[in-house]
Design a binder for these strands. Structure first.
Length: 534
RNA sequence: GCCCGAGUAGCUCAGGGGAUAGAGCAACUGCCUCCUAAGCAGUAGGUCGCAGGUUCGAUUCCUGCCUCGGGCGCCA
């Protein structure tokens, strides 16, 4: 609000100075360095050429014009560096922020409508139902679920889906591995040899069909693991059901009608190389079986009925899959821009100073469950969301366990617990928070107090950037910074101490409440608990 | 060879067309007679992989190269 009013004033001033078409590069931003004021504009730099003046000179004139505009809260203007205009505001503008935060509260503060009316279909994890979810898959769970929360707060309607590959050669091999173990035999060549296969084989009833039973067993495991991390799906879509419904055959017909399907070497191919893929892809193998691709195309085809934007979150090992899917969707007449693939880099786990290899086939698995039971769900989830999805992540289990008392999750949660403790102590001392309208906030001028308010003001920007860039870790960063601000405030600005002026005490109580709102929103978007005591 | 991603402090990583590049961990110094020290304050630590280009301005964008990770199946 403040920003847009400043930007408007800048535009107006520029026009008065003869800049007819203000370039879009003119921005009003929060400078990284607090010495550079509360807001800063690059207008003089960007428009210097068009105005045929040097940036400093244009800056001077712009500054004069802005001074005459007498914007609310503006306390001082200065020109600095190559020609930035730095704008310093009176604390009163931040006091308005505080009122806004606590009035709107956890439900309403920092919501955006950039996604209003847009349905987003989000598919993630979709691990093969042939074993427990390994620690790598947990990353997509945490990421996808948090992204859904972020999108939701921005007005989008996210729909979370898990695609179950419950047919095909891998599941068959898994079934054979289960029966082999049940009979005390070695698993077949290329089969699944993890310890869990033997354990599950012992649970399996004699009458059960090993493949069907195994898939159900694995899915149950995966669902529980994800739920432990507060990750839940709206829809579990079965590949098998899709085939049985005839949807796959119908999709194949449509592809044929599109004229990009041909038969070669007894297999049925899709000419994806026409649209940038490295080579054409097989839809139906020479033995008559579908490849993974064909039902998956049918699945994506179907998903267009359920979303305006279709997002897949894939591991880096599947990135080559994207061009062929995109080609197929174009052949089916879909708008390719509505299909988006987010490629996540791998997770490496370290234990005892060595990397732990992750592979279901060899049996070297660190399941998400194991991570959760060792680190706890909050630490696990926060660790996953600490870094950009583009970064190959290394989680050192020993480190996160050993440093449990000093890790960033607790740092943030501790801030929330301290806030609650203030409330409890206030009640014990009989101190009540007065109604907001009756409280004078003008005493909030300490740099620590103002820093916290500035950060709260930036929540919406952080949220929108997290949504636009599909980058939940921006929220992790934001919430850590807010916690840092709160901890500084906490040590430097006592709230309940007897020597604090009652007016100031009231104002600080509301500031604390504003922090609580900010932390609750941030942690909720990450899917991490906000504990009341630690 | 081709296609993705990454190269920023000793380590793990944020950041990103702007003004003196940040955080946590590790190291070193201080701070608990009133709200939880799982905290705070400070010191030290950097040719933002290399070379060109675009720009008033590049660590950020573009190109090339180097290094590392991943992929290049009638597996999924």
């Amino acid at each position: 609000m403040v920003r847009s009013s400043i930007l408007d004033a800048v535009h107006q001033a520029l026009e008065e100075l003869g800049v007819d078409h203000v370039p879009p590069g003119v921005t009003v931003e929060r400078p990284a360095n607090p010495d550079h004021g509360d807001w800063s504009t690059n207008a003089a730099l960007v428009c210097a050429k068009q105005a045929k003046k040097n940036p400093r000179q244009l800056g001077e004139e712009l500054m004069t014009a802005l001074e005459e505009a007498e914007l609310p809260h503006v306390e001082g203007l200065e020109i600095a560096g190559p020609g930035f205009i730095n704008i310093r505001l009176a604390p009163s503008w931040l006091h308005e922020t505080l009122r806004e935060v606590v009035t709107q509260g956890t439900e309403s503060y920092a919501r955006s409508d950039i996604g209003a009316g847009i349905d987003v279909n989000l598919e993630f994890v979709s691990s093969n139902p042939t074993g427990p979810l390994h620690a790598g898959g947990g990353r997509w769970g945490a990421f996808g679920d948090s992204l859904a929360r972020i999108l939701h707060r921005c007005g989008y309607q996210p729909h979370k889906e898990f695609y179950i590959n419950d047919r095909g050669s891998q599941t068959a091999l898994f079934g054979l591995s289960l029966s082999a173990r049940k009979g005390g035999k070695e698993v077949p060549e290329g089969g699944y040899r993890g310890d869990y296969v033997t354990e599950w084989a012992m649970e399996m009833p004699d009458t059960a069909d090993p493949t069907t039973w195994g898939i159900g067993r694995a899915l149950q495991e995966v669902e529980e693991s994800l739920a432990a991390m507060h990750v839940r799906f709206d829809t579990w879509s079965s590949e098998k059901a899709l085939v049985e419904s005839g949807a796959v055959e119908r999709t194949l017909e449509q592809l044929r009608d599109s004229g990009h399907v041909y038969v070669k070497d007894n297999a049925t191919w899709l000419a994806t190389s026409e649209l940038g893929d490295d080579k054409d892809r097989v839809l139906i193998k020479a033995d008559g079986e579908y490849t993974y691709l064909l039902p998956d195309i049918a699945y994506h085809h179907d998903k267009y009925n359920r979303g305006d934007i279709i997002i897949d979150i894939l591991g880096a090992d599947h990135h080559g899959y994207v061009p062929r899917m995109r080609a197929a969707l174009i052949f089916l007449g879909h708008e390719p821009n509505e299909y988006e693939a987010i490629i996540g880099q791998n997770v490496k786990l370290m234990r005892g100073g060595e990397e732990v290899k992750l592979s279901k086939r060899t049996g070297d698995i660190i399941a998400v469950d194991e991570l959760i039971s060792e680190l706890g769900p909050d630490v696990t989830r926060f660790a996953y969301l600490l870094q950009s999805i583009d970064t190959t992540q290394t989680i050192d289990i020993d480190l996160w366990k050993a440093q449990a008392s000093e890790n960033p999750v607790f740092y943030v949660q501790y801030a929330h617990a301290r806030i609650h403790a203030i409330g409890v102590e206030a009640a014990r001392r009989g101190i009540e928070r007065h109604r907001l309208e009756q409280v004078d906030l003008s005493g909030l001028v300490d740099p620590n107090e103002l820093a916290v308010l500035r950060h709260l003001l930036e929540l919406e920007d952080a949220l929108v950037s997290a949504a636009r860039d599909r980058a939940p870790h921006r929220m992790t960063t934001w919430v850590r910074e807010l916690a840092a601000g709160f901890h500084s405030f906490y040590t430097h600005c006592p709230v309940l101490r007897s020597d604090v002026d009652p007016q100031l005490q009231q104002a600080r109580l509301w500031l604390v409440e504003a922090c609580r709102v900010g932390l609750s929103i941030g942690l909720d978007l990450l899917g991490v608990e906000a504990p009341e005591r630690m």
